[in-house]
């Protein structure tokens, strides 16, 4: 039997590759989902990872850091939150 492929469509899936956690500790929604204010996951609602290796939806973390009570600390380990460069 001989098969001729007329046309094909590539489909791919994506997944945030962060080993430590599956959900954002702040909003409790999966990293692959969105923060509560966004509609589309992925590049529109990215993760942010600190030097301490803790990750959150970027929007969730920024909202926390704008509150006075955060004192600029990571919600997980209470170290000063600095975005990891690598």
């Amino acid at each position: 039997m001989k098969v001729t492929i007329d046309k094909w469509i590539g489909v791919s899936t994506w997944h945030w590759n962060h080993a430590q956690d599956e959900v954002c500790g702040i909003c409790r929604v999966a990293f692959d989902g969105t923060c509560p204010t966004c509609k589309y996951p992925g590049d529109d609602c990215p993760l942010i990872i600190g030097e301490c290796k803790h990750a959150f939806h970027m929007h969730c973390l920024l909202k926390w850091l704008t509150t006075e009570s955060s004192k600029g600390l990571c919600p997980m380990c209470r170290r000063r939150f600095k975005t990891a460069t690598e």
């Binding site: 500790g25 702040i26 919600p75 209470r78």
Partner: peptide, 12 residues
């Protein structure tokens, strides 16, 4: 009187 319910609260 418990610190985590006051200034030591964290959203996680």
């Amino acid at each position: 009187c418990l610190d985590i319910l006051k200034d030591k609260w964290s959203p996680v």
